[in-house]
Amino acid sequence: MTQSVLETRNLSKSFGAIKAVDDVSFALQKGELLALIGPNGAGKSTCFNMLMGQLKETSGQVFLHGEKITGLLPRQIWRKGVGRTFQITATYSSMTVIENVQMALLSHHREIMRFLPYATRRHHPEALDLLDMVHMADQADRHCAVLAYGDLKRMELAIALAHNPSVLLMDEPTAGMAPKERVALMQLTAQIVDNFGVSVLFTEHDMDVVFGNAHRIMVLNRGSLIAEGSAEDIRNNPLVQDVYLGGGSVFGADEEVLDA
């Protein structure tokens, strides 16, 4: 087996006495579309924030192409080729759609500290290509504050792809979207994975989205990975069924699940 693109080893995070993420180890392979699911409060976002350097881990490591990246800042991790989208969109609301993308390109080309050129004239074709990839080219010059939420999500995807990332982290990419849009966005993502060989790790609530597109699925509950496998495996896993359907609530003290 080739070296994995992104790997965590024994990643843990505690907030006081609460273990939000407990000893999580997994690996993302090249070209893989990997889903991380779990009920609310299972630790998905905490896990994500540690991968991106936004939260400092309590213990454990994260490796990118075999290189340790724990302790690095978000912007440093981004430079190493990790892109991300946010659960709640984070966009530059005073700019146009294409300027949002150009911003990421300017950063990628290390032109942030330049005072002379007009920013809007830099990397315009490249930005347009990226927008085209997410079917947003026709909206390039619109003010992004007036966009529909689904369009913002797609724009964010274009931003995340601006620096040719090898890994893409997507935190609930379809949250807040209409069901139809969700499927379309995930199909788009799957397409990009196919075309560019990007590896994607995403969290998701919508099981249709997950089971329809993910190559592999991991289930997190109360900070621990409880299952991993194909869509079929996960569907038939009794533990997972218990978490999602049974009494396996987040803070219910059901020790059996944890010990399993």
């Binding site: 912007r75 981004w78 946010f86 050129p117 920013a119 601006a162």
Partner: peptide
Amino acid sequence: HVQHSPFGYALRAARDSQRQAEATGID
């Protein structure tokens, strides 16, 4: 002019969304 330059845009980016700016390599 600086407001229209990459630096000015980065400054505006930091104001609009510090989260996104930091996540795309901007200090």
